[in-house]
Computed example of a mutant assay.
Amino acid sequence: MTITQLQYVLAVAEYRNFTLAAEKSFVTQPTLSMQIQKVEEELGILIFDRSKKPIQLTDIGHKIVAQAKSIVNEAGRIKDIVDQEKGFIGGEFRLGIIPTVMPTLLPMFLTNFTRKYPKVRLLIEELNTQEIITRLNNGHLDAAIAATPLDEEKIKEIVLYYEPFVAYVPENHSNFNKKEILVDDLNPDEILLLRDGHCFRDSVLNLCNISTPKNSKFQIESGSFETLIKLADEGLGTTLLPYLHTLDLKEKDQQKLRHFQDPKPSREVSLIFPKSELKMHIIEALRSTIAGVIRGAVVFQNVAIVSPNQKK
């Protein structure tokens, strides 16, 4: 059997559909089906149960797919070894970034990185944390930038920086006259949140030690910090923002920001990647570039990390 045949097996295992797997593999469906059939005939077993819709893996098929992932990853490592030996940093690199980090961090490092490593073709996608984990595990991302710790068995994390939470408090709120606030000063029932699926939302809920918002009058969830700020200005509550996001606010809005007392509740932002450590030379180049630009922007040391993991 060949590496290409194993890649076809992995595609069908992921998409559970021969036609879609062929499309994603850039081959015709008959070609893909024939190659998988050759693997099954060579091994004398069935990897897929074609009688079910969607297609399911057989018991032995699960074991074969797990081994195929390992083989395909190790085959990819050969090119990594050669590239590193030659000192070559280039090629396609697929990077995922969570929505609450992308708008602030990406403009800070992208120009520097592309100038320093012009042979790297970055393919960047804005994805939520669960999508990132799934794509890293399926081999569809080389690395990602997300809030950590994630405690994922197959994923490694390198911390990039710690980013404090900052409260946005409208003028008519009782916390407005305080220079700094405590977590206990927050009223969980009035905090305006990002919609479900954002890890920043989960971190805020964890910070307030609640599993769901309990506002009895209304429940507003948005995918935009800008919307939450406008709602707070209308007297509908308060909200929490990541520190880097506050740097771009207008001066009149910055006057409504209230920092927490030390240790400041913060999120940990990390570069994450599969434990197979493919393309580590590019991952290290990315880490080094981000570290160079972020060092002067986020200098907080006395912080308390708030987990992004949802409470069960």
Rank of each mutant, 00 (worst) to 15 (best):
I3E: 05
Q5T: 10
Q7S: 12
E23N: 04
Q29T: 09
P30T: 09
T31K: 08
S33T: 10
M34N: 05
Q35Y: 08
Q35C: 05
Q37Y: 03
Q37E: 14
L46V: 06
I55E: 11
Q56F: 04
L57V: 06
I60C: 13
S70G: 08
V72N: 10
G76S: 13
D80V: 12
E92H: 06
F93L: 07
R94C: 04
P99Q: 10
M102L: 15
T104P: 09
F109T: 00
F113V: 06
K116M: 11
E126P: 00
E126W: 01
E131D: 08
L150M: 13
E152N: 09
A167C: 03
S174D: 13
L186F: 11
E190M: 02
R195F: 01
H198Q: 12
V204Q: 05
K217G: 13
K217D: 12
K217F: 10
F218A: 10
S222N: 11
G223D: 15
F225R: 00
E226T: 15
T239G: 13
L241T: 07
K250M: 13
Q254H: 04
Q255L: 15
R258M: 15
R267W: 00
F273Y: 15
S288P: 02
A291K: 03
V293S: 10
V293L: 06
G296L: 07
Q301D: 12
S307F: 11
